[in-house]
Design a binder for these strands. Structure first.
Length: 424
RNA sequence: GGCGGGUUGCCCGAGCGGCCAAUGGGAGGGGACUGUAAAUCCCCCGGCUCUGCCUUCGAAGGUUCAAAUCCUUCACCCGCCA
């Protein structure tokens, strides 16, 4: 018999590799517990993390119990998978802080309250920290063959290039220990993760078999790439983060809206929780009426609602509509303008103070990195005040330029907006 | 521990005493065309009080009128040998 969840994941292109398909299908024929780990290597998760957590959510919606794990311990050590160079170790305090931030983000994606499938959050520091070095070497280390450890891609790649420290070399053992621990205490039978995690997951399966004589499963998810082969989820300003202070809700929505048409089928399948029929309909709209960008908008709405809440999603979409609308910007009413500009990076000018020069304003809002860059942009004809091109580098705005006596709308290029507010 | 090679701007990578803010490619930015898309073409791409000045070529010293380029020491990486 086949399994609807696996078939759906397959259709979405979300399966890179798995342990024996038949056995996995059988295991999934009744509700199981499965785990997915994320290491706190930054203050926030990004879109790459979101992909795998959404898969965890898909399992939950199919009736299984998710165990999201934050790597309070593994984050202190550093995963060599997919890394060309040794990581710099982060302070314990910092890692602990990141752990708590990531937990909050996970709570937005996974349901913790459902009676049957409510998730259980765990932190591997809880069981890793108490283990002494000697116990670790005798009880755990004894089950690992260095020969096998060296053969893992993550280690082999590093041995062939930059080398690897004993610390990072040990990473796979820690992750294996996690799986064993969760197998024991939560009856966890499946671990999912990015495809770069295959080696680490398999290490866990081996350990479970050796220590407990038990069987568990593994499933990995392909790492996302854009249609042009470049890394996904990065923009000029860096990665797309889930934390609103790192990537604003407005930027987050804009990311989806500005995605390449060619990427839309893949993005919809990977990110959207909508069913196959609806996704196929949206993909069709990209072909029939690309200019409308219905699929872009719909996906932007769905993702922004998930991460930043439905109210915020609505707000940022409307802000975008107002700011990019065809109409005269000066005709927008104050309430709309207030709301729209609240989503943009903003700088303030004290009422009564003389206006700074145009170049200073651009630099102050952060749409350009330096005053030199600001001048360059004006020279190239890419600077706009209230949607009108600024011609001179020496330009200084005046009172008459203010919208509703209060705002200036600055723009660099087609879509990089910022606001100046005159504050009393 | 010994010998050899390396460390250049966001990344890759030239330069090997003055013509170097530093060739080339990629990434990135602006313009044109569009749909706040892609492809294509053109332009830009250290900073500033911008016809000039200031700070960059692993770090610190030194030689010289003049150093990314030469010398010394230190740090790190990569080979080969022990």
């Amino acid at each position: 018999m086949s399994n609807a969840l696996l078939e759906d994941l397959e259709w979405r292109g979300l399966i890179a590799q798995s342990t024996d398909r038949k056995e996995l299908e059988q295991a999934l024929s009744k509700p199981i517990s499965l785990y997915l780990g994320v290491d706190p290597t930054a203050p926030s998760m990004h879109l790459g993390n979101l992909v795998v957590f959404l898969v965890l959510r898909r399992f939950q919606l199919a009736g299984h119990r998710p165990i999201p794990l934050v790597g309070g311990a593994t984050g202190l050590v550093g995963d060599p998978s997919g890394k060309n160079d040794e990581r710099t170790l982060n302070e314990e305090k910092l890692v602990a802080e990141w752990v708590s931030k990531m937990k909050k983000q996970v709570e937005k994606i996974i349901d913790f309250d459902d009676k049957k499938t409510g998730a259980v959050m765990v932190n591997n520091l809880d069981w890793t920290k108490p283990v002494s070095v000697l116990d670790f070497l005798r009880d755990i280390g004894k089950h690992f063959s260095v020969n096998q450890m060296l053969a893992k891609d993550s280690v082999a790649n590093r041995l062939a290039t930059a080398g690897i420290s004993y610390t990072e070399f040990s990473y796979q053992v820690l992750q294996a220990l996690d799986y064993l621990e969760l197998y024991r205490r939560n009856d966890c039978k499946l671990q999912i993760g990015g495809s770069d995690q295959w080696g680490n997951i398999v290490a866990g399966l081996d350990l479970i078999r050796k220590v407990e004589g038990g069987t568990a499963h593994a499933l990995t998810i392909p790492l996302l790439a854009k249609s042009d082969g470049t890394k996904f989820g990065k923009t000029a300003s860096g990665a797309i983060w889930l934390d609103a202070t790192m990537t604003s809700a407005y930027e987050f929505f804009q990311f989806w809206l500005n995605s390449d048409d060619a990427d839309m089928p893949k993005l919809l399948k990977v990110f959207s929780m909508k069913d196959r029929k609806e996704i196929e309909r949206l993909i069709e709209t990209v072909n029939t009426n690309p200019g409308a960008r219905e699929a872009h908008r719909e996906l932007g709405r769905e993702m922004t609602s998930l991460i930043h809440g439905a109210d915020m999603a609505k707000k940022v979409e409307e802000a975008a509509k107002a700011l990019f609308g065809q109409g005269e910007i000066s005709e927008l009413d104050l309430a709309t303008l207030d709301s729209a500009l609240s989503q943009l990076p903003k700088t303030q000018v004290k009422k009564g103070d003389p206006f700074p020069t145009w170049v200073d304003l651009l630099a102050a809002t952060g749409v350009v990195d330096s005053k030199s860059a600001a001048r360059r942009i004006v020279k190239e004809g890419g600077a706009y005040l209230n949607n009108k091109k600024v011609e001179s580098e020496d330009f200084t705005p005046s009172k008459s330029d203010l919208l509703h006596g209060k705002y200036l709308l600055l723009r660099k290029g087609k879509r990089d907006l910022a606001a100046v507010e005159v504050a009393g």
